[in-house]
Amino acid sequence: MTLALLLIGFLLLAAAGAAMLSRNLIHSALLLTGAWAGIAGFYLWAGAEFVAFAQVLVYVGAVSMIVLFAVLLTRQGATTAPVEFDSFRRAAAGIITAGGVMGVLFGAILGTPMDVTSAPPPASITVRQIGAQLMGPHAAALLIVGVLLTVALLGAIVIAAVDKPDDPAP
């Protein structure tokens, strides 16, 4: 079990790191899609099947497509033109900050006595249970998410839509 987790984690981090380092935006987006699929693999490992499939459906299927379309729509020149790092200072500052945050998080995780049973039963939750939870105690949140998604859809269309040429200039 731990071996599988280590393998998933390694692939996940390798894909995410390569995506952040890559100079080709399309490669970045595709590698990141791989990282998202790896996260779905982690959910499967943890026994949350439903979330894993939802993650694949939303991230690998939908978000990756939006990202790829955005990359193609905002390109300057060829899509293969390398996207360089901005400056050494910026990169160094980013990495130092991330390193600091990582140190703090590691200290907190390793310093906290985790009150867990050594061998928990393989947790799993059926779709029926999730449905009952969503429609029962979390019905209000579900409705709000529905409204949020609709508003986000309309907002994205309005923001990204091309103004008609005969519109008066704002």
Binding site: L5, V83, F85, G94, A98, V101, L105
Partner: peptide, 21 residues
């Protein structure tokens, strides 16, 4: 694992200047 992933994302978001990245 999750904090490592968080830091990879943080480093990327701070170090790159392309909005999509």
């Amino acid at each position: 694992l999750s904090s490592l992933l968080f830091c990879v994302g943080l480093a990327g978001a701070l170090a790159r200047s392309n909005t999509i990245l």
